[in-house]
Simulated scan of single mutants.
Amino acid sequence: MEKPNSSNALVCELINKGTREWNINNLNSWFLPEDREAILGIPLSSSNTPDRLVWAETRSGKFTVKSAYALALEEKVHNTRADCSDESAGKIWKTIWQLRIPQKIKHFASKAARDILATKSNLAKRKITPNGMCDLYVVKMRKQSVICYGAVIMPKKFGRIAGSGVVIRDDAGEVFAALSKKWKSPLGAIEAEAKALEAGVNFAREVGIREAEFESDSVVICNALQGLVSPPSSVVNVLAGIMNEVSYFRQWKFAHVKRQGNVPAHLLAQHAKNVEDFVAWRADCPSLIEHACMQDKM
């Protein structure tokens, strides 16, 4: 049997069916680091949501003639740049494709020649990321309410991981449960916000909460869940899974909250870099956020 690689692998082979996360071992074996990072940056829904077609050239994921025209012009420039106009250059490319080396190395050379590698600058050109700068800073995402949660993109020294913090409180403000969870994926800010909210909803359901108000400091995510705007294409399935999960609650509400008063969840999100997968607390307040919770109640 032919060994799977980036040219014949099926998407289902790249996903761990038990955890609904990317299969890191297969990704490492079959893809180049640039392609692997791009794949890991796509958040997966923890629910079994149906597949859907997404047009990657627009933020909404919907096809437009304008975006197709822009893509055609861009590809024309790249192809012109990569085309071998002279015979000697043509022989070089022919030799490269005949080399007995892994296909992914050949594909990498081809992409590099056409300047279509998944670099930050190229992703910014296609409006997949907000800018083309390297992520050398911490992006903080914090939320607070009956369930409050936060997500933070760690600096490169931690391997570009995303974390979330979840704090569940009762009407009196007492901590009922808390969670600190890590994803070993280079998620973007919006993607990390969506996965943090998903973690909060799933955790609340697991600990027996049936009436809850879920708050997020992401206006985009809150408006999308309330049906006010179309969600970004990268998180459509995650938000669809969230809506499926909240249907099990008797009462639920999504609301936007400013990030200033959410220290406990933010601390738990930062703490995620110290855990292997996740750590949860029940019926008590984690010592690392005890002081922050006291201050938050005042």
Rank of each mutant, 00 (worst) to 15 (best):
S185R: 04
K91I: 06
V166E: 05
S247Q: 07
K111L: 02
R126F: 10
P43Q: 05
I128D: 05
V139W: 04
G261F: 13
G90D: 06
A118H: 11
R282V: 04
I105H: 07
M294H: 12
P43R: 10
G61E: 05
F249D: 00
S247Y: 08
N274C: 15
C222S: 14
V152P: 03
E37C: 02
V11E: 13
A113V: 09
V246A: 09
A283V: 02
R59D: 01
F254C: 02
A82V: 03
K17C: 07
V167Q: 01
Q144P: 02
V138E: 14
N237T: 11
I161L: 14
E57W: 11
D277F: 13
W22E: 08
F278E: 05
K156L: 14
S230F: 06
N223F: 12
A56K: 10
E174C: 12
L53N: 11
R59Q: 07
L32H: 04
R205M: 03
F278S: 01
G200E: 08
L267I: 00
G132T: 02
I289M: 05
S121W: 00
T19C: 12
Q260S: 15
V279F: 06
M1E: 07
E206H: 03
V279S: 03
V246Q: 03
P4Y: 06
A70K: 14
I15D: 12
P4I: 07
D135A: 15
E75C: 15
S216V: 02
A283G: 06
Y137V: 14
W55Q: 07
A172K: 15
K182E: 01
I15W: 11
T119F: 00
A38G: 01
D170M: 03
E87K: 14
P232W: 02
R282C: 04
A118M: 11
A192E: 03
R100H: 14
G208M: 08
V65N: 13
A192G: 12
L187F: 12
C222M: 12
I24Q: 10
L268F: 07
K297G: 10
E75D: 11
A113R: 10
K91R: 07
H256N: 05
K181N: 00
Y248S: 01
V54P: 04
H107V: 01
K253S: 05
A70H: 11
C148S: 15
H271C: 00
V138K: 14
A265F: 00
S145G: 15
Y69V: 11
N244S: 08
K143L: 09
T19I: 11
A56E: 00
Y149Q: 13
I15L: 13
Q251P: 01
I190Q: 13
